[in-house]
Amino acid sequence: MAKDKKKAHANAASITRKQLIDALNGDLAREYQAIIAYVNYSQVLNGAAYMNIAAELAVHAAEELAHAITIANHIDYLGGMPTVVPKPVRTSEKAEDMLHFDLDNERETIRQYRRRVLQCDELHEFAISESIREILMQEQDHLMALATALGIDTPNPGIAD
C-alpha cells in the first residue's frame, strides 16, 4: 500500500495551475520589458556600426509584442488576469551596454520559457507548451542576433531552476 501511495504522489504535478499563471505573468512582464527596451534602443542607437542592429531591434519589438499577446491569451485561458506591469528596463548612453542588457534579458527569457515548457507539459497543457516553443525559436534568434552584433559567441542560457 505504501508503494501505491508513493506512486500516486510521484504522478502528482509539482506545479499548480495558479503557479503556472503566476509564472506566465512573470514572462508577460519580461515581454513588456523587452518591448520597451527594443523600442527605446532601436531609436537611440546611433553610428554606422549600429544602424543595421537598430533596424533589427525595431523588428524584435514587434515580435515581442506578439509574444506578449500570446502569453496574455494563455493566462486568460488558464483563468488568470494578465499583468500590466513591465519588469524594469535598463538604459545607457553606450550602445554596447544596451546590447549587453538585451542579451542578458534574452538569456533570462529563454531560461524561463524552457522551464515553462516543462511546466506546461507537466500540467498537460500541451497547446500552451507548443506555443511557447514557437516563441522560444524567436527568442533564440534574438539572442543570436545580439551576440553577433556584439561579436561574441551565442551564450547557452540554460534553464531556470
Rank of each mutant, 00 (worst) to 15 (best):
I152Q: 13
F126Q: 05
I53W: 03
R114I: 01
R107F: 00
R107M: 12
K18G: 06
M144W: 06
R30F: 02
T70M: 03
I159Q: 10
A58Y: 14
N156T: 15
V89C: 02
N25V: 10
R133V: 00
L146F: 12
K94V: 14
K87W: 09
M81G: 01
G158Y: 09
N156Y: 08
T109I: 03
D161S: 14
L150H: 13
Q19M: 10
L45S: 09
K5W: 02
E31G: 04
H67L: 00
L65Y: 04
L57V: 03
G47M: 07
V59W: 02
M81P: 00
Q140R: 13
N40I: 10
V85M: 08
A23S: 12
N156I: 11
L103G: 14
G80R: 09
A23H: 09
K6P: 11
A160S: 06
K3N: 04
R111H: 10
I69S: 01
I135D: 11
Y77N: 11
A37D: 02
E130P: 00
N156D: 15
R115A: 01
V59A: 15
R107G: 00
T148W: 06
N46S: 15
E31F: 00
R133F: 01
K6N: 12
K7I: 09
V89Y: 07
E63F: 01
A95Y: 00
S42R: 11
A160C: 03
C120V: 03
A37H: 03
E93A: 10
D22P: 05
H124S: 07
A12H: 09
I53N: 12
E106T: 02
I69M: 07
V44C: 09
A160E: 10
L28G: 02
D104K: 13
P82Q: 04
L65F: 03
I36Q: 12
L20D: 10
A160D: 14
A13D: 10
E130N: 13
L123C: 06
